[in-house]
Design a protein around this nucleic acid. Structure first.
Lengths: 179, 179
DNA sequence: GTGCTGAGTATGGTTTACGGTACTCAGCCG
DNA sequence: CGGCTGAGTACCGTAAACCATACTCAGCAC
């Protein structure tokens, strides 16, 4: 409440008064809401691993048909997957689910999560999936960098500030009461 | 089932036979399990925004005390937050919650999610929080890059392969039956 | 010692998500 | 035409997560 200044090494700490702003709807939350239902995360991950068909999703994730069906519908409605017709010879026309640009753009988030878990929640036998640069063969990871190309090594280099969508709180100074 | 080769632009598609391997426990899933309960994501996000105290978490997230208490305990048990004693003058000794190294290392994932939502799920008034490089002022984003420093522009550059933790499926060739 | 505040605990109901199983339905295959 | 398969739908019951509200409890302030 006082101008207690957190050490900058702590996190992307705001220099502004966090109490004075309403940050809903928060972008991190909106993204997590998409991936949060376990089944949604499983389906998206499988899509990244190359799965496309209903029954393959079902076997790879262990989801029941009802849940899987609902999730595929949700993700399609959200524009993360798209239904594409295909026609195996000697079989009837069906459709499969593929990532859209919007879905594919989750790659950085997915890979960041994968790297994080491999480092901090390692499974006994080592990672089950490894990602390598095709050709060069070196492992893939995410880097934080600013638009001018400077690397971001610590969260102390990150300055969080209210954006255009932030609203000022009704009572920034007075009581802590805001509900 | 046939060696249908997915176009490499689709995703981090495996050149290996996805059917022949059991990939549990998947790293993406383990990471998402940490952030998946809505309240966990909210708490971690707030921690990144600089929140440290129980009551501040409660107001910023809108969580009820019971849920918040449970979540802080979970995250502390998982080593993502840590309890640190502090002593405001004229007040009694209390403790606050700070990110650990493990928690701080979620930055790339959190920021990737934030960037993704800002691009694909924009809120009407624009982003509520913007991240800038301290000093330089340019916006922060994540980049995919391999350990040799080559940038990864498309998922076609990413080759997924089974890691040391992957187990071969019992019946790779025969029936599709595996349950 | 009474009151206030920050930090929780306790209890109880509700919603959301998930699992299990059975069933449908369209079309190619013989 | 009857069966098989991929792709679902329908109808349950259960479990996890959540919300609302009330209460406790420690210490400083007066």
């Amino acid at each position: 409440m006082q101008p207690r200044v957190p050490e900058p090494t702590e996190a992307a700490d705001p220099a502004w008064n966090r109490e004075a702003w309403l940050l809903e709807p928060d972008s991190v939350q909106r993204a997590l809401d998409v991936l949060a239902p376990r089944s949604a995360g499983q389906v998206v991950r499988e899509a990244f691993y190359g799965t496309r068909r209903f029954d393959d999703f079902r076997r790879h994730t262990g989801l029941t048909p009802g849940v899987l069906s609902a999730r595929l519908r949700d993700l399609t409605d959200q524009g993360i997957l798209t239904k594409v017709a295909y026609h195996d010879s000697g079989s009837r026309r069906r459709h499969e689910y593929r990532l859209t640009d919007k879905g594919r753009d989750l790659a950085a988030a997915i890979i960041s999560l994968l790297n994080w878990a491999d480092r901090w929640l390692p499974s006994p036998g080592g990672p089950t999936v490894v990602l390598a640069h095709r050709g060069c063969g070196a492992s893939i990871r995410t880097e934080l960098r600013c638009a001018d190309g400077h690397p971001v090594d610590s969260l102390g280099d990150v300055q969080a500030a209210p954006g255009p969508g932030a609203r000022e709180a009704a009572d920034p100074a007075g009581g802590t009461r805001d509900r």
